[in-house]
């Protein structure tokens, strides 16, 4: 059984067979790292002060100060209100946009418009949208609601549009064959197929809007984020840490509830 022509040494074949490509990728990565680190402006002097500063911040932050419960509560209630209203508006508005952005039921110009709205609203981080709305309509929860509504339209609209594109077309044909118009077809053949998904998505969106509402407040769009930003701005670190802890707790609870509801629904 001894074949003498068999190679008797063995090395693991490289991950990328082409040596040029292999070393090319390595070289590009190394160059990139050097370039990125060289061009990024690090203020080392300021960074060096970081340790004593963090000692001061954490020293000032512990123990967290829960004495201003009313302020904390007001902030959270506002966040919750923002989340509820934005979810409702966003989910409701996402339906027409999803229909517009579904290739199989929308005419091409409408489709392009719908897609554009969804792409644009998904490209911008809610905080950027929030800062624009704050500039347009002023500080406060209104900017927050508008921001998160747009955010919800982008997220729910995209998933819903994909859902519509994957519906069972046979049902649509059956309803059309029964003589139904466009609207009746939508209501009888399209909506029943996407509704279960929509309910689950709404729950998910409520959860993620509650998270986001804490964030958009940082640029002045109301809710607990604004309270947090003020506390940070006044170097009021013990109150800031109290807010942070409560935010974490609320997020965990809300994630738990939303997960539980979605599990029950599906």
């Amino acid at each position: 059984m001894n074949r003498s022509d068999t190679p008797r040494t063995w090395r693991k074949p490289p991950f990328i067979a082409n040596p040029l490509l292999r070393y090319g990728i390595l070289a590009v990565t190394a160059t990139y790292l050097v370039w990125a680190f060289a061009t990024l402006p690090f203020n080392w002097q300021r960074i060096a002060e970081g340790l004593p500063r963090s000692a001061r911040i954490f020293g000032g932050g512990f123990p967290p100060n829960f004495s201003r419960v009313d302020l904390l509560l007001t902030g959270f209630i506002e966040s919750l209100q923002i989340a509820i209203l934005a979810t409702l508006l966003g989910v409701a508005l996402s339906i027409p946009f999803a229909i517009m952005a579904a290739r199989n039921i929308a005419p091409l110009p409408v489709y392009l418009l719908g897609r554009a709205v969804i792409i644009v609203s998904r490209s911008f981080h809610p905080v950027i949208v929030a800062i624009l709305f704050v500039a347009a309509v002023g500080f406060g929860p209104l900017a927050g609601i508008l921001t998160l509504t747009l955010y919800s339209i982008g997220f729910v609209g995209k998933l819903l549009a994909e859902e519509i594109e994957e519906i069972d077309w046979g049902q649509v044909e059956a309803i059309r064959a029964a003589g139904a118009g466009y609207l009746a077809t939508l209501i009888y053949a399209v909506f029943p197929q996407i509704l279960p998904r929509q309910v689950g998505l709404s729950m998910y969106q409520l959860d993620s809007n509650l998270r986001a509402s804490a964030v958009v407040g940082i640029v002045g769009a109301g809710g607990i984020g604004s309270t947090l930003m003020n506390a940070f701005g006044r170097y009021d670190y013990d109150f800031a840490f109290a807010i942070l802890l409560v935010i974490i707790a609320v997020i965990l609870v809300s994630e738990g509830i939303s997960g539980w509801v979605r599990k029950r629904l599906w």
């Binding site: 059984m1 074949r3 068999t6 008797r8 040494t9 063995w10 090395r11 693991k12």
Partner: peptide, 19 residues
């Protein structure tokens, strides 16, 4: 980690795989 096994192991592996 580097898959640099001793020559004797590789030899044995080839013999057994041929078998």
């Amino acid at each position: 980690v580097t898959r640099r096994y001793p020559q004797a192991d590789i030899e044995r592996a080839f013999q057994l795989m041929e078998r």
